[in-house]
């Protein structure tokens, strides 16, 4: 198997109104990877995915999927790819069964061969009981799972999900995370765009950040998080009105009578801070990160690109 699942070379997109959405994207996704493609709204994520999935015409550049050139070896390239788009894009009048089995047909899989796979996917994604009703009657979460079943029916080696958990409740989101993790462990390469950075941090091994039509970061999650030299912690304390200690030159800020906030550098330990708190007579009840670590980094990277 080709080691590179997806390779984008010099991808550019200039829309008819002259807006340059992509300014030369170069990106490689290794086979078996779980990559998060992050970026603010309008950064070019959906345009990139649109070009890869043949829904947007590119202006320049090359897309290869598992070594197959999308323009020249279209059948093999497209057969290797499954797409779960951001918005619902299936006929609201057809049943889940019809939608998924027709999609298998579009990939050249006869109905009698596809039936078992469709049944397995609908059962796995909790849609089996709803298979014969109009898809417009499904809940939002079910519709999203239907699009996942549809994208997987031809057993693609690369799955692209454009904000798959947008508008999905927490329980369902967690179950989708488990499903995607399992899928990735079985060998499917996954590229995911999301606005939930917690999702990217929990699921993905590598992260690419796109901003203003350019890739501004493309590295492992571990390497990216190592760049984060400072974290902000919040401490819930018993009511306190005394003087506040300093910690390694960073002031301890009191947000209200029962809440403190401190910036901690990576090389500093929390043990010394707790000693300072004890000396000042502050009783800590609980503590937490102020923000998701990846979120802090993301904001910094995007702001520095402005």
């Amino acid at each position: 198997m080709n080691k590179t699942a997806l390779k984008l070379t010099g991808l550019r997109k200039i829309y008819a109104n002259g807006f340059e959405a992509l300014k030369g994207i170069d990106l490689e996704v290794e086979s078996g990877d779980f990559l998060a493609l992050l970026g603010p709204n309008g950064a070019g994520k959906s345009t990139t995915i649109g070009i890869v999935s043949s829904l947007v015409n590119k202006s320049e550049g090359q897309v290869t999927i598992f070594g197959y050139d999308l323009d020249k070896e279209t059948f093999n390239a497209k057969s290797s790819l499954g797409l779960v788009p951001q918005e619902f894009n299936f006929s609201q009048f057809e049943t889940p069964w019809q939608i998924v089995i027709n999609q298998a047909g579009y990939y050249g899989i006869p109905r009698n061969q596809a039936a078992a796979r469709v049944e397995q996917l609908l059962k796995q994604l909790g849609l089996w009981e709803k298979r014969d009703g109009p898809s417009r009657n499904l809940s939002g979460g079910m519709k999203r799972r239907l699009m996942i079943a549809r994208a997987l029916v031809h057993d693609p080696k690369l799955l692209i999900l454009d904000e798959p958990t947008a508008g999905v409740d927490i329980e369902l989101r967690r179950s989708m995370w488990e499903f995607l993790t399992e899928l990735n462990e079985q060998g499917t390469t996954i590229v995911l765009t999301t606005h939930y950075l917690e999702e990217a941090e929990s699921l993905c091994r590598n992260i690419a950040i796109i901003d203003q039509g350019r890739i501004v970061e493309n590295t492992s999650k571990k390497a990216l998080l190592a760049k984060l030299d400072m974290e902000t912690f919040i401490f819930d304390i018993e009511p306190y009105q005394g003087a506040l200690p300093d910690y390694c030159g960073q002031p301890v800020r009191q947000l209200d009578e029962v809440t403190l906030e401190v910036d901690i550098l990576r090389h500093d330990t929390l043990n010394d801070l707790f000693v300072r708190f004890k000396e000042s007579g502050i009783t800590v009840l609980s503590m937490r990160n102020k923000a998701n670590r990846l979120e802090e980094l993301f904001v910094r990277l995007v702001e520095s690109n402005d």
Binding site: S53, K78, E87, Y106
Partner: peptide, 17 residues
């Protein structure tokens, strides 16, 4: 036109048809 409007024409555009 319905396929365009409801965007399920994308099912065909994504596939190798």
């Amino acid at each position: 036109f319905s396929a365009k409007f409801q965007r399920h024409i994308e099912e065909l555009l994504v596939a190798p048809v």
